[in-house]
Design a protein around this nucleic acid. Structure first.
Lengths: 190, 190
DNA sequence: ATTGCGTGTCAACAGGTGTTGGCATACGGT
DNA sequence: ACCGTATGCCAACACCTGTTGACACGCAAT
């Protein structure tokens, strides 16, 4: 039970730290993003980061808080599930660098990897389960969707493969939507 | 023009360093894999690493040398291209941790990212171009294949999403082969 | 006006990093 | 048997890291 918590005078500083942290984690990954650099971006002393977030791990945990904001899939026509999902993810990624930060950090930081696992099993697998075929394939289907979604993000935002960086969102949608659609509603053999 | 280079007495040490480096880079990523730890694994002094490979960057460059060993795609029946590719990649990944090392490092190390770009444009895009449809879509098709392949590797070997870790290779083949097939030979709309 | 606490800065510590130079040793060619 | 050189280890440097504690300032309530 956290108290009503009347606004603290340092809320602006806290927010500045969090914003700078997300930028640095997204650009450099967990280990290369130093507390000193983050503090410099936020124009405060490194010790403030420690006071407000306890440790570097704590700062990352706060900065990597992320909600996929998946739409209600039961309200989507079953034949448009793939297109809906890929559109949603593309929009979500272009507008918020938190996921890129999480993605980069998850490669080397065990805690970040676990957080990513949590997001994609709790949020994605949960959403896939709502319209579920009733079978026990929900986890597998969600995992396959995650593999294509994360592969897109990895090649486009992390490794920056030219063909994937140059591609217009609409073109990516037209290619990838059928893939997700099959992972969600198709049968394994073709 | 490198000389015939008669075998040096230190070849065993060089190989031990390289093997330890690949293990550490694969397990920990570029920044967490320390030269001291690698040297300890190889049971030699850290300074030897510097003498033989110049710097940590140089060591990584040597350790991340990788050949996808893609088969000749012109000899494959066009309808089996997707299955051939996913089978090849799965086998290649399970048997050699170099690609995992490269994948982990590419998330945070610019040099590793560029190396990965080189591999997937030179080797993969080149192979896709051999049986090419003649269009200018080769790069895009190769990029999409890379996105699914790397997404599979990322979720299975890096983040270790349970549904992807538990999946039997044959099941992954049956799901992903059609995806690659469509990326390679299909048309964008549907 | 005074007290207390939240906010911020400064300096420093302890540990780990890549990297370097010097010194011993053992091998291989002559 | 000799000598040059390759191989290996040791100690140290200079730097950067996360983290900590002491100290100054200013706001807010009494």
């Amino acid at each position: 039970m956290t108290a009503p918590a009347r606004p603290r005078r340092s809320d602006a500083t806290r927010a500045a730290i969090l914003r700078a942290a997300r930028e640095r984690f997204a650009a450099d990954g967990y280990e290369r993003a130093t507390i000193r650099a983050i503090a410099a971006d936020a124009r405060i002393d490194p010790s403030m980061v420690m006071r407000y977030y306890g440790s570097k791990e704590g700062l990352f945990a706060a900065a990597a808080e992320f909600d996929l904001r998946l739409p209600d899939l039961t309200a989507v026509p079953p034949a448009q599930l793939g297109e809906t999902l890929i559109r949603h993810f593309l929009a979500r990624w272009e507008g918020d660098e938190t996921l890129v930060a999480l993605l980069r950090a998850a490669s080397t930081n065990p805690g970040a990897a676990e957080r990513m696992r949590g997001i994609f099993t709790d949020q994605l697998a949960a959403a896939v389960g709502t319209f579920g075929t009733g079978e026990r394939t929900t986890g597998r289907r969600a995992g396959l969707v995650a593999s294509q979604i994360l592969g897109l993000a990895f090649t486009r935002y992390i490794v920056r493969l030219p063909p994937m960086v140059d591609a217009a969102p609409e073109e990516l949608v037209s290619w990838i939507a059928p893939t997700l659609q099959r992972y969600l509603t198709g049968r394994p053999e073709n």
